[in-house]
Design a protein around this nucleic acid. Sequence first.
DNA 1: CATTTATGTAAGTGACACTAACATATGTAA
DNA 2: TTACATATGTTAGTGTCACTTACATAAATG
Lengths: 217, 217
Amino acid sequence: MEKDSETSQGGEAKRTGYHHGDLRAQLLAAVRELVEERGSENFSIAEAARKAGVSSAAPYRHFADKDEILKAVVLEAMNDMTTSMKAAVIPHPVGSIERVNALGKHYIDFARSHPGMFRLVFGLSESHEDDEELAGKGAATFRIVINAVADYLGIPQDHPDAKKRAYILWTVVHGHSWLTIDGKAKQQGIEFPLSDLLSTASEMVLLDRRPTDDANH
Amino acid sequence: MEKDSETSQGGEAKRTGYHHGDLRAQLLAAVRELVEERGSENFSIAEAARKAGVSSAAPYRHFADKDEILKAVVLEAMNDMTTSMKAAVIPHPVGSIERVNALGKHYIDFARSHPGMFRLVFGLSESHEDDEELAGKGAATFRIVINAVADYLGIPQDHPDAKKRAYILWTVVHGHSWLTIDGKAKQQGIEFPLSDLLSTASEMVLLDRRPTDDANH
DNA sequence: CATTTATGTAAGTGACACTAACATATGTAA
DNA sequence: TTACATATGTTAGTGTCACTTACATAAATG
């Protein structure tokens, strides 16, 4: 059954016969494109089906409902993000602050280059909070940050201080991502370069060696 | 024309005659409730109309489309937020770090107590970026933060360093708000008290007196 | 009191999420 | 091969929604 449409390099390969052969994957690709084009609230499954060249009922042979499709797309996006961040860390020496900064940069770069997906992953109200698979992906990614922070500080990776400082850096990077894609940062005349923001923030959070509350007890 | 339904204390006062008398306000109230109940993506104008006791066409006598309704609701929410933050600052002495922390606390409290509205204000893809009125409200609120930071640092309120540090604090508070309402913070076992997070972050950002990049040139 | 204007209704239109009944292809077992 | 189950597609619904058009009623204005 491997004919000619299973690579889906563009998300646009049409089918040949009655059966599609690669609908699930192409549907997800179509949804990703539409989410970027129109935003996660303004796209329809029907249009994604049209884009994949099938009827509007076909998607329901592969997914229970719209929400399940979105969840699958979110999972793909989180995988991309994790992959990108794992790669980001490699060129920088273990224990360096650049390692921490590279993680922040790739997080924000993802948000800026895929704002629609970022909103989908982090902005949905019924945000699949309780989904094990998504939670696991998130934990794996946060772990990378915690480890980079612990290595820089020269403390064990399971020290609560590492987690706390890593979380504060996460909030900075996450908050800046949102404020940037929402246009709020520019609206308020915030225009310093990303590298400056990142290094300033990481130095503030990591060079401050006064004990944190849960480190001293 | 002030009969009996203009107070709209619950957002539920029904009408008496053919004309409603207070539809615009009650519609906005109904939308706010629905947004909190079902999330900003899963409510309909039709249902808000039903809740206000009018036909599904009535809202369009007061608003051009759904988007204009949402914009009006967002404006209300931003006013509430600004009011709350202006009040938050009063009990604390000018120049104190508590003044800064109180602002952060009220921002996050708003997000936690009205997650639906928070998502609406900050999470929509076509987020009324270019709307003058909304931008103005946002600027007024950010100004409060900048001033509190400048006063604490003992520098002029228009010093770029005040704006930069205020922005970093904004990202922390904004990021934490999102990660909290999305359940990501709890998911990753982040559970330290809000006051601890706030004071830790503000001390890291404000006690660090090394020059920032745009302060020294 | 007559008329304009504001604000309501009912009855559409077209799109969408999703379902049910049916069609075609594919895999597996005889 | 033939038979049948299963996977995956189609068409034709249903109910809801955003929004429009034509009409109705009431309030404000002259």
